Computed example of a mutant assay.
Amino acid sequence: MTFDPEALGQSKTDLAETLKTLRKRAGRTQVWLAKRCNMSQTKISNIESAKLTPSLVDVELILRALDAPPELVSQVAALTRIANTEWQDVWSQRRTGLEKKQNELAGFEKSSSEFRYFLLSMVTGLLATPEYVRASLAGIPGDHSKAIAKKLERQAVLYDTSKRFTFILTEQAVRWPYLPAVAMAMQIDRLTSVSLLPNVRLGIIPLGSHMPVCPLNTFTVYDTRIATVETSTGAMVFRDRRDVSAYLDEFAVYDGYALFGDQARERLSEWASQFRS
Rank of each mutant, 00 (worst) to 15 (best):
Y254D: 08
S195W: 02
R241M: 14
L169E: 00
A65I: 02
A183N: 03
G234L: 07
M211R: 07
P198M: 13
M186I: 06
T228E: 11
G97M: 10
H210A: 13
L61E: 11
F165N: 01
C214L: 15
P198V: 10
S209H: 12
L207F: 14
Y254N: 05
D89P: 13
L158W: 05
E86D: 08
T18A: 15
P215Y: 08
F275Y: 12
L207V: 13
F115D: 01
G256I: 08
D255A: 10
K100I: 11
P141F: 03
Y222I: 06
P198E: 10
N46I: 09
Y254C: 09
P215H: 07
F238W: 10
R225H: 14
P180R: 02
I188K: 00
S145C: 06
A246F: 10
K100Q: 13
E86T: 11
D240E: 14
T228D: 07
I168P: 00
R154A: 04
F167P: 00
A128Y: 02
R267W: 01
R154V: 02
A16F: 06
I205L: 07
V157H: 03
L197F: 14
T224G: 07
A78G: 11
G139Y: 04
T21L: 15
K110M: 13
R164D: 08
T220D: 09
L63A: 05
Q41C: 10
A173Q: 03
G203W: 00
A156Q: 11
G125P: 03
L152R: 06
Q172H: 14
I148C: 03
T80V: 13
Q30W: 04
A83G: 09
V133W: 00
F118G: 00
D160G: 09
F118H: 01
S74T: 06
S92K: 14
T228K: 06
A264V: 04
K150M: 14
M186Q: 12
A26G: 06
S277P: 02
A138D: 09
M186F: 09
D189I: 06
Q93P: 01
M122P: 05
